[in-house]
Design a protein around this nucleic acid. Structure first.
Length: 216
DNA sequence: ATCCGGATCGCCT
DNA sequence: GGCGATCCGGATG
């Protein structure tokens, strides 16, 4: 086999999905290390891939901004599932938000996927978001990302190792490129630095000027 | 039965 | 940077 053929064959094999053990760790670490990982979403309309560039850690019952603070309810049931479960919830009457559950089953912590860079399936993403003109606006926010990828409540409570919604290993993001700030859009624990993103990446969501970024 | 706030977005100024 | 859309979950009466 030629060198090029070997590279092609290797590329044809998809990267492994992140194992449950990846998620069964400190939620801030998981949020940091999800940067660069690739979301794969398979739907009847087709497949999309996108690279995670922004996340937020929600730490569990003792984090006032985390849904787990309200306890175990029908809405938050999947947040209390095992590490590596999807938790998708409905917000503001219009939008879905996609989280990956962390730590041991019953802990109630998760990482919100806030923004990603489109990688594959851009025509499908545009078809799902007809009024968007620039690629940069397809997935640069938690609600937008779910619209473009076709993520909704039917994908909550599923294993992120099995699909149709999975997260695969990607190119790691080095510490030098990671920034940390408080989380966006919350009122409780608004000063906790639990938002992680890739510095300078054009697909990161719009950041309020009030949020000073710093290296971790 | 009713009220209120929310891990957002897009359009307006 | 401000605001309206739109609706569900949880709290309160």
């Amino acid at each position: 086999m030629t060198r090029n053929a070997a590279l092609t064959a290797r590329r044809a094999r998809p990267a492994a999905t992140l194992p449950a053990s990846f998620y069964d760790r400190d939620t801030g670490i998981v949020a940091r290390e999800l940067l660069g990982a690739v979301i794969e979403c398979v739907t009847p309309q087709g497949v999309t891939h996108s690279r995670i560039v922004e996340t937020e850690a929600y730490l569990g019952p003792h984090d006032p901004a985390c849904h787990a603070a309200a306890g175990l309810t029908a809405r938050t049931k999947h947040l209390f599932g095992p590490a590596g479960t999807s938790y998708v919830y409905f917000i503001y009457g219009m939008y879905w938000c996609f989280n990956a559950v962390t730590r041991e089953s019953g802990h109630g912590s998760a990482v919100l996927i806030r923004a990603a860079a489109p990688v594959d399936g851009l025509p499908l993403m545009h078809a799902r978001r007809p009024h968007v003109r620039r690629d940069a606006d397809l997935t640069n926010g938690p609600g937008k990302l779910c619209l473009a990828l076709g993520i909704d409540g039917t994908m909550s409570g599923l294993s992120l190792q099995k699909g149709p919604l999975v997260i695969r290993a990607g190119t790691p993001v080095v510490d030098r490129d990671v920034r940390v700030t408080p989380r966006i859009g919350i009122t409780k624990a608004a000063d906790w630095p639990q938002r992680y993103f890739v510095a300078g990446d054009p697909f990161v969501s719009r950041t309020p000027m009030s949020l000073q970024s710093r290296r971790p």
